[in-house]
Design a protein around this nucleic acid. Structure first.
Length: 263
DNA sequence: ATGGTAGCAGAGCTA
């Protein structure tokens, strides 16, 4: 089975690229982040024609997550137990836009869009750390089976995961607290299934031709439970999907990450 | 320190 994760930066704008990616790499399960659409807005016909089922969640124009699967899509859940929400203008807490879980081909898959944090002194940064801690607690219950925590984690775990750490001196993604929050998953038994096979960047900012100069970040991860990690036979970052020279219109600023599992 | 690009929505916010 082949699973993948991709922050697409608008599923409607990028649907042609998503369908081409699914076809080219014969993806069985694709976790998507930043759909930037509510479920009823999504163009799903092309996916359904290819034999995929889709489960989407999202309530605002910035985030949104989805799971696209051709090997089953069961027990869909929006949000994880204890997931913190962000209440805006005293409205309802936005939980739906950041996490969706489903069982696909016997694997429990969570598509996650972890809060960006904005600035280290911003309230969203504290929210990000709170979100990490709550996810860790919930995820401890999933370690016993074949489970995958996949998506945009908005953290560069090591200096090797940043093109120039000096440029991030007063920025999120590289602070000790964020890195600790990420590495606590490894302490619990979650395995970075991609790094041994491909440690390359997964994100390049749209600004300043960062992709062309390979000045990127590694922030998209597939963490596997011990039993799932034992099934991994290979993994890679599909840089071509981020290449502005390929396809029409702008690509997402993230590349997809692909992981192969033995049956 | 600022600004550069992209998407949604139709101005300004978010990343």
């Amino acid at each position: 089975m082949r699973i993948a994760t991709w922050n697409v930066n608008s599923l409607r704008t990028r649907i042609d690229r998503v369908e081409a990616f699914l076809d080219q790499h014969e993806i069985d399960v694709l976790a998507v982040q930043e759909t930037k659409a509510r479920e009823e807005q999504l163009p799903l016909m092309g996916l359904q024609a290819r034999g995929y089922d889709v489960a989407a969640a999202g309530t605002n124009q910035w985030n949104g997550v989805a799971i696209i699967s051709r090997v089953g899509l069961d027990d869909v859940v929006t949000g994880f137990p204890g997931q913190p929400g962000w209440a805006k203008d005293d409205g309802p807490a936005d939980i739906e836009s950041r996490a969706i879980g489903a069982t696909c081909g016997g694997v429990r898959v969570w598509s996650l869009y972890i809060p960006n944090g904005r600035k280290p002194d911003d309230p969203h940064y504290a929210y990000k750390l709170e979100w990490y801690a709550a996810l860790r607690t919930a995820a401890q219950d999933w370690l016993g089976g074949d489970a995958a925590l996949v998506g945009d984690w908005n953290v560069c775990p090591t200096d090797d995961d940043v093109f120039d750490v000096a440029q991030f001196k007063n920025s999120t993604h590289v602070t000790p607290a964020e890195r600790e929050a990420f590495f606590r998953f490894a302490e619990d038994g979650w395995v970075d299934t991609v790094k041994p096979h491909d440690p390359s960047y997964t994100y390049w900012d749209y600004y300043r031709q960062r992709f062309e100069r390979d000045r990127g970040l590694r922030i998209d991860f597939v963490l596997g439970s011990p039993s799932l990690a034992g099934r991994v036979t290979g993994a890679f970052v599909d840089r071509d999907a981020r290449d502005p020279a390929q396809g029409t219109g702008a690509p997402s600023d993230h590349a997809p990450v692909v992981v192969d599992l033995a049956d």
